[in-house]
Simulated assay, not measured.
Amino acid sequence: MAETEPERMSTRAAFADALPELAARHNVLVVDTDTGSVKPAPGMDYLNVGIAENAAVGLAAGAEHCGRRALVCTFAAFSVSRAFEFIKLDIAYPRRRVCVVGTHGGASGGWLGPTHHATEDLALMNALPNMRVVVPADARQAVSLLGQCLEYDGPTYLRLGRKDSPVFAGLPEPELGVPQEVRPGRDLALVATGPEILATALEVARGLAAAGYDAQVINAHTVDPEAARAVGRAVDADCRWLVTLEEAWTSGGMGAQVASALGARGIRWLPLGVSGFLPPGSHGALLEDSGLTAGAVLRRVLEFVDHP
């Protein structure tokens, strides 16, 4: 069973530390958009094209067409919106082996405000056929899943957080597309994606246990429609209630994919995520305002299961 460790480390920092070795090992061209998240190193093919996300995606797609794997590092808010057409037509449509890395995912842009918050990225990337959409649960999983994205025979989107976030003990090694049951349970399933949200789900499960409910917790580190079908298979056969938690707009996000996969089972569903645009503020305050803290989620879940 996974537990939150005292240490914290951002998935972006773990990515930055691991990228030079992994890029050299897999012969990857790294295209940066002046994010400050990439540490160029000897043996790593690196290009910084500046704040030009469209050009970065097109360049990476062209390199892959010529036989090179490629990675594009951007701010999530800019890759999924400003460069969406290029990701759609240059990467997803021809199934290019390009990994698009979006930093500052969710509300982790904090005080930078709605221009830098990326709460629409899961829905937009999930809409693209062929795209694997990946949200590591912690810094360790970020490194493992980065390596798997660089080996994957197709396009991937890797969402990373900006600042220090929870790290988990007892979390199994991730496998792209395969959800992880991190706490068994039969009454209801809490399906969570991302570090802060998984930590919240584990705390909520303990609160539900005190109230007499046996809660299963599933880490959905891959959140695209194909992975959602795997989540559906992982939900306990006796589950009566489904709760999905994500640091994203719920329309089209992870929860919508999982609920669709489970639709035939008739399980009642409570989607929890970000609603509307967020003002500038600390990451923690924005999660609290969105009702994604453990106390707020526990109250919502208890109301949900107690009032059919």
Rank of each mutant, 00 (worst) to 15 (best):
A23L: 03
A23N: 04
A23D: 06
A24M: 07
A24C: 09
A24H: 12
A24S: 15
R25G: 11
H26T: 06
H26E: 12
H26K: 11
N27L: 04
N27A: 14
N27F: 03
N27P: 03
V28E: 08
L29D: 01
L29S: 06
V30C: 09
V30A: 07
V30T: 12
V31H: 00
D32K: 01
D32Y: 01
D32M: 00
T33D: 02
T33E: 04
T35D: 09
T35Y: 07
G36L: 03
S37A: 15
S37P: 00
S37Q: 10
V38S: 06
V38M: 05
V38R: 02
K39G: 03
P40H: 12
P40V: 09
P40L: 08
A41K: 15
A41S: 15
A41P: 13
P42A: 04
P42Q: 02
P42E: 02
P42G: 01
G43P: 11
G43M: 10
G43T: 11
M44K: 04
M44F: 07
D45K: 14
D45T: 15
Y46R: 07
Y46P: 10
Y46N: 09
Y46D: 10
L47Y: 12
L47T: 14
L47W: 06
L47I: 15
N48K: 06
N48S: 13
V49S: 01
V49K: 00
G50C: 10
G50F: 07
G50I: 06
E53L: 07
E53S: 10
E53Y: 08
N54E: 11
N54P: 00
N54L: 08
A55Y: 14
A55H: 15
A56V: 06
A56N: 12
A56G: 14
V57T: 10
G58V: 05
G58Y: 13
G58D: 06
G58I: 05
L59Q: 08
L59Y: 14
A61K: 08
A61E: 06
G62Q: 04
G62M: 04
G62T: 09
G62R: 05
G62P: 09
A63P: 08
A63I: 03
A63K: 10
A63R: 15
E64M: 01
E64C: 06
E64L: 00
H65T: 13
C66T: 11
C66G: 13
C66D: 12
G67V: 10
R68D: 05
R68E: 05
R68M: 10
R68A: 12
R68Q: 12
R68H: 14
R69V: 14
R69Y: 09
R69L: 05
A70F: 08
L71D: 00
V72L: 05
V72K: 04
V72H: 05
T74F: 08
T74M: 08
T74P: 02
F75S: 11
F75P: 11
F75Y: 15
F75H: 13
A76R: 05
A77S: 15
A77P: 02
F78H: 01
S79E: 00
S79N: 03
S79T: 02
V80D: 00
S81Q: 14
S81L: 14
S81E: 02
R82H: 08
R82I: 03
R82A: 06
A83P: 02
